[in-house]
Design a binder for these strands. Structure first.
Lengths: 309, 309
DNA sequence: CTCAGCGGGAGGTCCCCTCAC
DNA sequence: GTGAGGGGACCTCCCGCTGAG
């Protein structure tokens, strides 16, 4: 396990108490925990994304209100000057495509792209040595290579300088598609952050060998961060987003939308059986009505322990 | 209908393109649209709530990482100084209970509380006149009273000054439970915002009668904002929050949790029948397994048009 | 190396004002 | 009433630096 354990129950209770019975705050908290803790997004990136969402809400009202700056400003308690700037920013983004600060992907680009860039900039085929530090005997090189976990992909081992260069390249690439206005300059603090994230997630391993005086870095995973839990987190975010859209349609009373919540108690020994039956039943229902070329539909469901009534 | 119409499809498409295939951003956008447009929350209030969620994520990591300020800072690209301040803020909030900036309720307090406070500060029983402006003949008063919609509750009609006072009282009350540090002073801009929101939602009606030279204000709804859509929005936020919790449990592989997505196409003429059957089927399933005193369970589901595969 | 402090800059949220249409 | 412009306050997110344990 590369990631830290789940939030302890008492801490979770504390957090719950703070956002006390406010579902909107609860959604925000879950989203922050998912994207920042699991996804590895920066604190500032999450704030930017939230700001962007709010700006889009303002823009949408601006359009609906007949492009009235002042009225829009009153509705959301924003200065007309600021409304205008926001509208301009959105319109430019719509015209040029994607220049707003969004989370955009499950993980920051600089974290996902590392394994590929590593292999590209420091290629390593079976005939060349993985350790190319000067002043080591072949035996010493072998010792270092064998200290790596067996699952590590075949990649060169980098020294401090090479690794830092790689991180800077990653950062520059992640900034390329952004407009000049909100690019973030590379800095020591940012480098430390990225390096720490890579080590924390287990994508990269730091080797402090007594044979060399500088730390070495080895690629230990072919892709940023592990399968399993990580993938389920992605699926969760995906599900919630789609579920939100479905309910949005339900709110506006679109035809062909259904939403439901069933509350019940169940005997412990029957629980698994009931859930299995539910799964099979819904699958059968979807199969029964499926007809190629018909209206595209989706059914989402989740069942589990009821927390607080 | 007091609220503006739904987002036009083309605008919605535009917004969709911006947050392009990023589910996390899509959740944020839906949340912003719901709380700001529907709920009437301020732009700044949404940003504050998002910031609070991110701070809680930081705090939770801080605890998990053995209260290591520096490590936490690296993980999220936050200055140690700032991490310390955030941790302190959260701990204080946990100790004293609720002093963080959250959305907290579906609507801002100053919007919900208005009808009650109106009746309390300006009582009106059947024997007293609803219009108490000086210098009007009984006939003129009657004309103004009859210009109100029939659904308006029995409440006094206020002049500009009285209405402004009422709004200020509302604001002061909404600030009372907040700690001194982040209270927001009353201002003209804030007053305009609240007034505009009340008029926009149809809770209050402005009367520009030719009989008086100042505008009058009448309470036109016993509760902030209409039933129907508004209530469905609340239900939606509630559902999404609970759904998120369920999936959270699924991610950590808790026992007794099930999650599923069924994708299928359906013939238009069969759609309603299928949905009705689904509803009945799930209800029957929950009834079948229900047993008083058993484990508390909840099943949530939503079905509808599949937007993009 | 970690922890602590202090400096600065940029940008955003807030406030208020005036003037032309 | 709206748009467009000016001012200033405060906070927070970024950066860098130094010194004590």
């Amino acid at each position: 396990m590369t990631h830290q354990s789940q939030v302890p129950p008492d801490l979770k209770q504390d957090l719950l108490r703070v956002v006390d019975s406010s579902p909107a705050d609860w959604i925000l908290l879950n989203l922050a925990l998912s994207t920042m803790k699991m996804g590895g997004h920066r604190y500032g990136a999450f704030l930017d994304a939230a700001t962007t969402a709010a700006k889009l809400a303002i823009y949408s009202t601006f359009v609906e209100q007949g492009e009235n700056i002042r009225k829009t400003g009153f509705l959301y308690h924003v200065e007309p000057k600021r409304v205008k700037a926001i509208v301009h920013e959105i319109q430019q983004a719509l015209a040029e495509g994607q220049s707003l600060k969004v989370l955009n992907s499950k993980e920051p680009y600089y974290l996902i792209a590392l394994p590929f860039l590593w292999q590209e900039h420091f290629p390593c085929n079976s005939s060349t040595a993985r350790v190319r530090i000067q002043g080591l005997t072949p035996g010493e090189r072998k010792t270092i290579e064998e200290s790596l976990p067996a699952t590590a992909p075949l990649a060169r081992i980098l020294d401090q300088v090479e690794f830092n260069e790689l991180i800077e390249i990653l950062h520059q690439m992640s900034q390329e598609e952004l407009p000049q206005s909100h690019r973030m300059p590379f800095s020591d603090a940012l480098m430390s952050h990225i390096k720490f994230r890579l080590l924390h997630s287990g994508t990269v391993l730091q080797i402090d060998s007594p044979l060399v005086d500088i730390p070495l870095y080895a690629l230990t995973s072919a892709s940023y961060s592990p399968k399993g839990e990580q993938e389920r987190v992605f699926a969760m975010i995906d599900d919630v987003a789609r579920y939100f859209s479905l309910l949005q349609a339900w709110v506006s009373e679109d035809a062909g939308v259904m939403r439901g919540v069933e509350v019940f108690d169940i005997a412990p020994q029957q629980r698994q059986q009931a859930l299995d039956e539910l799964d099979a039943m819904l699958r059968a229902w979807a199969d029964k009505y499926h007809q190629d070329g018909g209206l595209p539909m989706v059914l989402q469901f989740a069942a589990g322990r009821r927390e607080h009534d």
